[in-house]
Write a protein that binds this DNA or RNA. Structure first.
Length: 587
RNA sequence: GCCCACGUAGCUCAGGUGGUAGAGCAUCGCCUUGGUAAGGCGAAGGUCCCCGGUUCGAAUCCGGGCGUGGGCUCCA
């Protein structure tokens, strides 16, 4: 492909191999479909892709013949030959082949008169390289799927057919990767959500509008209690505000103008009233701030709410619980003086880290989301943006945290620190976020009375410390593969009487656990113990207590945990042990 | 929104080149009271996603929707 694209060229042997496999794919495709035009084909994580314009629609059924042709070419031991042409020569070559996408790339991307190309037999590609020596080195690869992709990532450009593949330096690694893909399927939160009856979606309710079932709602309640309690202890003020507001509120905030395409159409009433489902909570919290005149003594003021947000995401972007049209954000808006800004940013990061630690979010990266240079996408002055970004960078660096830059990923009112997590399929999502905002305070004319009696403008920090409940939940489902820590699990203990004669004792166990505020079920179905164990195991219940005649006699429980370990202990001891584990939120 | 695929019982899936469908699990009933991952027998359960069209006849063919999955674009 064109390393004339925006990809960094790399000498990493696996990248080279994947890049070469992309060329191999394009060579096979152009042999089988001579009128196909090729776009770009870089290496990516775990593999490669190549984009083509075909004269007829290509489906996954077309992949097998393409893959066999690739293997044939690989065996032919064709060398990858590097050549340098003049611009005119290169343009002529690609014109001869009808490859207008390559011509466009040469015209737009190549500087100077030298053009670097690679030949693989008949196949010629604009490419900086490097490549493997011969197609013979390409042995462990597999085509995975076809997808649509806009030429040069632009919605207004034609859509090409992208073929994705995976490539490794050995068959063993390829096998392992295929195994990983299979495992990812099993960990998928959509699958587990159904199996464990955590949530459901139903087209009668609508796309992207999940329903939390009792088991899922129990976990959410625990999460919310934990989050709210922790925030209260850190000086946050929790509020409750409505899910709708007058449309004008979003004109004032700028959301209607800059975020409007994601908003639900307003509800219009006969008397002229226009109400809007809120896409964000900030304006409501600003109104809370403005409900009375604030003094510098009130600041920082940390207004928090697990607030429902409504965003009409485009249908094709919805993904399970990760991308929905109604979600509850663990949100807060901190109003502070410029002097307090740094401390508040650090405090927000610290809280997000604390939540991550307790919840087991142990793999994430920081993305510093900055603006790009598209002028009408952002509010405010360059100076304000620089100041805001400097605050975020300083906070991260003083905490010794590494980050990468996300150009164009900022909110319209300011830069952000995003905590990026990956789902089972290694797709990246933002969970926690911390944002510095000088714009909304201006647009809403926010003020506080300073020590000298003057009116001053506060700074706002927007932060979602635990992300949205939906996205957080999907992460946790996949993180624990449904085997949630005891404090979160919908059913902490299942009591299994061996025969009906022990149902009475099972009820005693149940009552004792319940009194300790534990969630317990007695499995009194007319089934065999083995069956009940199997079912509890499938639900990943942390503890089973087997109650037989011996246990009833001794007021003991025979405990089996979901790892299969068995112990025999006094009932009171067991109750205390589990209650303790729950109180500690052990994982 | 766009590209590709898919939509059959609550779930996982067979089947059907046009003559209204089947398994396992789950559910319900009966029998079984069993010491650490599926006891037995039986019953019930489907407008084959929806709406049009073609046809004597559509779950099957055609068109349009809706939904799901994977990508692109966009984002908690």
């Amino acid at each position: 492909m064109g390393e004339y694209g925006d990809h960094e060229s790399t000498e990493d042997p696996v990248h080279v191999l994947r890049h070469s496999t992309a060329h191999l794919l394009a060579a096979a495709v152009t042999e089988l479909h001579p009128d196909a035009r090729y776009g770009i084909g870089p290496p990516v994580e775990d593999g490669f892709y190549y984009d083509f314009a075909f004269s007829r629609p290509i489906t996954e059924a077309d992949l097998a013949p393409i893959e066999s042709r690739m293997r044939r070419i690989a065996q032919e031991d064709r060398p990858f030959v590097h050549e340098t042409m003049t611009r005119e020569q290169a343009l002529a070559e690609f014109r001869k082949r009808g490859q207008d996408y390559k011509i466009e790339l040469i015209n737009d991307k190549v500087e100077g008169d030298e053009v670097s190309v690679y030949r693989t037999g008949e196949f010629l590609d604009l490419c900086r390289g490097p490549h493997v020596k011969s197609t013979k080195e390409l042995k462990a690869f597999k085509l995975l799927r076809v997808a649509g992709a806009y030429w040069r990532g632009d919605e207004k450009q034609p859509q090409l057919t992208r073929i994705y593949g995976t490539a490794w330096s050995s068959q063993k690694e390829l096998d392992e990767h295929m195994k990983f893909l299979e495992e990812a399927e099993k960990r998928d939160h959509k699958k587990l959500g159904r199996e464990l009856k955590l949530f459901t979606v139903d087209e009668r309710v609508g796309a992207g509008l999940p329903l939390w079932l009792p088991a899922g709602a129990t976990i959410r309640r625990e999460l919310e209690r934990f989050i709210v309690d922790e925030e209260l202890s850190r000086g946050y003020l929790h509020v409750r505000t409505p899910d709708v507001a007058r449309l004008d509120l979003y004109r004032q905030s700028g959301h209607l103008q800059l975020y409007g395409e994601n908003m639900y159409p307003p509800m219009r009433f006969e008397d002229g009233e226009e109400l809007e489902l809120r896409p964000v909570n900030c304006p409501h919290h600003i109104v809370v701030y403005q409900s009375e005149l604030r003094s510098y003594r009130d600041l920082p003021m940390r207004i928090a709410e697990i607030g429902n947000n409504w965003r009409y995401e485009r249908s094709g972007t919805l993904i399970g619980l990760n991308r929905v049209r109604a979600f509850a954000l663990n949100d807060a808006h901190i109003f502070c003086t410029p002097d307090q800004l740094m401390g508040e940013v650090k405090g927000a990061i610290d809280l997000a880290l604390y939540f991550s630690d307790v919840l087991g979010i142990d793999e994430f990266s920081y993305r510093l989301s900055a603006r790009d240079d598209v002028k009408d996408k952002w509010l405010g002055t360059e100076e304000q943006w620089d100041r805001a970004q400097a605050a975020l960078v300083e906070a991260l660096e003083s905490m010794g945290q590494k980050y990468h830059l996300g150009v164009g990923e900022a909110a319209f009112y300011g830069p952000k620190i995003d905590f990026q997590v990956k789902d089972a399929h290694r797709r990246e999502f933002t969970n926690s976020t911390v944002q510095v905002d000088f714009q909304l305070p201006e647009r809403f004319d926010l003020e506080y009375v300073a020590e000298d009696g003057s009116r001053q403008r506060p700074v706002m920090v927007h932060r979602g410390a635990a992300g949205s409940m939906e996205r957080l939940f999907s992460y946790l489902i996949e993180r624990y593969v449904g085997a949630f820590p005891t404090w979160l699990h919908p059913v902490q203990v299942v009591v299994i009487p061996i025969t009906d004669a022990q149902i009475e004792y099972a009820r005693v166990i149940e009552a004792r656990l319940r009194k300790a505020k534990l969630r317990v079920e007695v499995d009194d179905r007319p089934e065999r113990m083995q069956r009940k164990i199997r079912d509890a195991q499938a639900r990943k219940v942390p503890y089973m207590t087997i109650a037989g005649a011996r246990e009833a006699e001794a007021q003991h429980v025979n405990v089996r945990d979901r790892g299969g370990n068995q112990t025999d202990e006094a009932l009171d001891e067991f109750v205390q042990r589990v209650a303790h584990e729950v109180a500690e939120k052990r994982r």
